[in-house]
Design a binder for these strands. Structure first.
Length: 597
RNA sequence: GGUUCCGUAGCUCAGUUGGAUAGAGCAACAGCCUUCUAAGCUGUGGGUCGCGCGUUCGAAUCGCGCCGGGAUCACCA
């Protein structure tokens, strides 16, 4: 929608240069942007690049072009030139038509057809040895939001999760549980399954450290002790047994994992995220192994004396990478090769996005290089690592050993609790039923958390300050939710039927109205931009701008008491579309919006 | 050390393919609730865009070199 008018003008400009100067100008070279609010006009054409063609000063070139546009395009009514910037003003009817045509469009800004091809996006990808923490929260929110944005931009999106249910880490938890667990279960302990297993992972680490200390005390070198501690060796043996399908090991593994899955499911549900398909590494790692063995036969990989298999990537500026251990068990890379292959077989997507933290940048460079260049799979060219920065705390980095990890479940509960306290203090829920009130606290608490995390550019490391995150004023979800609720209330009181209201006296549009209409007009292209950059932050920042603008507009004068009926209708119409844009934006961030608060 | 990402107000962050006088929120200060919901609005103060050089009509944005910080360079996942 917003591109329509600017594309139109770009064509006019192209025609102008062919007819007046017999010159061809590439459409990408023409820069049209929203006019800054300090200047008069709707769109600004930057005219400096035209001077080589016109052989005239930027100002004169701009004036001549302005003249032409006013004459040629009936939507352009006037122009002004400031230092080589050509500001054009569109006919008011353009803006009022825009309002009319979107008034009852609940999908405003969202593309409904899958016209851009298929994308598989993987996110969350937890290990089964411990509960989800703040880092996973960023991952989950980012993945879920990017998936929604891509879909809204017209892609056919498949959301997948890959659970790392096998490997040495889960063997460690299992071992600790077998040795010191006394058959403890989630029921007997009252702990959520993932938290229970996490507890044993910590116990393993403690006991392992003790053993190392003892060995060092007997005169062993630290590095050697770390490798020879009996507990670690036992865990390694267990992994081997697991890969050889030892019934007892498998039984315990399945039992403990099932507890963890129940725990994860609860967390995902609370967080409001979901998947189309869940992959388990235990099902895919053997495919990875066979890929590696094939590569070995073809001479793409090489084998060392201890039977371990390696890929030599030194010619591509990377190192040598282990693909299979000497004992034949697989490593992280092995299973990722397998899952990529499997995923391609399942969906044959144009793109595969992996939402994984930036500490794994190297891993994904290697993964793509091996699949695409070494093994020669064309489809692997579509692999994209959506890398995001670390979440830091004011106290420093999160370290599980030092107990500075922020647990996802606890965090969400704390946010909801804080939302409840502040809401009650303001008396917002006095008239609510208990169910409505509980639902509102949840929306506000989780909304604040999600927005706080998603408003930051994914690429950057971010600071998670617990106190700031529960702030409910300023650039926060509750502020946006609040505005949405107020508009709902306004519209309800107005009693206007938007299916009938479709025509306006465009001369009633004044600058306050125009400012916000221009912002709304941009919305569809904002979604495209967010999709191209895989960045929910683009949506969040847009929504905040829109809401701020609307609040000024709203405060300006009482809409319902507006005496001019035509003007009142136009302000109600703007409120309606703003409401839809807010709701849709928050939907793309996975944030619920209440209709009253 | 190699590779890579980041560096914008006291703090947390925006800043579109290079565009006009670099913007918000928080914090501070001053106003606005008999006026559709004050989780709001209006105003004030606050900047060597890490530093330097280059590219050009024009640089927070692009290039090169420094400085500072993170990540990674595992038979962990």
């Amino acid at each position: 929608m917003s591109t329509y008018i600017t594309e139109n003008i770009k064509q006019n400009i192209q025609e102008y240069f062919t007819s007046q100067y017999q010159a061809n100008i590439a459409i990408e070279k023409i820069v049209i942007q929203k006019t800054k609010s300090d200047f008069e006009g709707d769109f600004t054409i930057v005219c400096f690049s035209f001077t080589p063609i016109t052989k005239k000063s930027p100002d004169i070139s701009a004036n001549e072009l302005g003249e032409y546009l006013v004459e040629k395009n009936r939507l352009v009514v006037k122009y002004n030139v400031i230092k080589g910037f050509l500001n054009i003003t569109l006919s008011l009817s353009y803006w009022s038509d825009f309002i009319s045509s979107n008034l009852s469009n609940l999908k405003f800004g969202l593309k409904t057809e899958n016209s851009k091809g298929r994308i598989v996006i993987e996110y969350s990808s937890p290990n089964t040895n411990k509960p989800l923490h703040l880092g996973h929260v960023r991952n989950n929110l980012l993945g879920h939001s990017v998936a929604s944005i891509l879909k809204a931009d017209g892609f056919d999106v498949k959301k997948v999760n890959l659970i790392n249910d096998r490997g040495i880490h889960i063997c460690k938890s299992m071992l600790a549980w077998m040795k010191w667990g006394n058959q403890e279960t989630p029921e007997s302990s009252g702990l959520k399954g993932d938290h229970l297993i996490g507890k044993y992972y910590v116990i393993f680490d403690q006991k392992y450290k003790e053993q190392i200390k003892e060995l060092v005390a007997t005169g062993m070198v630290q590095e050697v002790a770390e490798k020879q501690a009996p507990l670690l060796i036992e865990a390694q043996e267990m992994l081997l047994k697991w890969e050889h399908n030892d019934p007892e090991v498998r039984r315990i593994w399945e039992l403990l994992n099932s507890w963890v899955y129940d725990g994860f499911e609860f967390t995902y549900k609370q967080m409001g995220i979901s998947f189309d398909k869940i992959y388990y590494e235990s099902n895919t790692y053997s495919l990875g192994k066979s890929l590696v063995e094939d590569g070995l036969k073809k001479g793409i990989f090489n084998q060392r004396e201890d039977h371990s298999v390696w890929a030599d990537l030194t010619n591509d500026g990377l190192d040598e990478k282990l693909l299979l251990r000497g004992d034949g068990t697989s490593v992280y890379m092995t299973q990722d090769l397998g899952t990529a292959q499997l995923r391609n077989d399942d969906y044959s997507p144009e793109k595969m996005i992996y939402v994984v933290g930036n500490e794994q940048n190297y891993h994904f460079d290697v993964l793509k290089l091996i699949l695409h260049k070494k093994l020669g799979y064309e489809w692997a060219g579509g692999i994209h690592h959506l890398s995001y920065g670390m979440v830091e705390l004011p106290s420093g980095k999160m370290k599980s050993r030092e107990g500075t990890v922020v647990d996802a479940d606890e965090l969400m509960l704390a946010m909801i609790e804080e939302a409840k306290l502040q809401t009650i203090e303001k008396g917002k829920t006095d008239q609510f039923s208990p169910q409505e009130a509980t639902e509102l606290y949840r929306m506000i608490g989780l909304g604040a958390l999600k927005y706080f995390i998603l408003k930051v550019d994914p690429m950057k490391n971010m600071m998670f300050n617990p106190e700031q995150s529960i702030e409910l004023t300023g650039n926060t979800a509750p502020f946006i939710q609040y505005t949405h609720a107020r508009i709902c209330s306004l519209l309800e009181k107005s009693g206007v039927d938007f299916t009938i209201l479709h025509h306006y006296e465009s001369s009633k549009l004044e600058s306050a109205e125009l400012a916000i209409i221009r912002q709304l007009h941009e919305y569809p292209s904002i979604i495209t931009e967010a999709s191209a950059n895989y960045s929910p932050a683009v949506i969040a920042n847009y929504a905040f701008e829109l809401v701020k603008m609307y609040n000024s507009f709203y405060q300006e004068k009482p809409i319902l008491k507006e005496e001019d009926q035509e003007k009142k209708n136009i302000r109600l119409a703007i409120s309606q579309i703003t409401r839809i844009a807010i709701r849709n934006s928050m939907f793309l961030l996975g944030i619920d919006v209440p209709s009253k608060m």
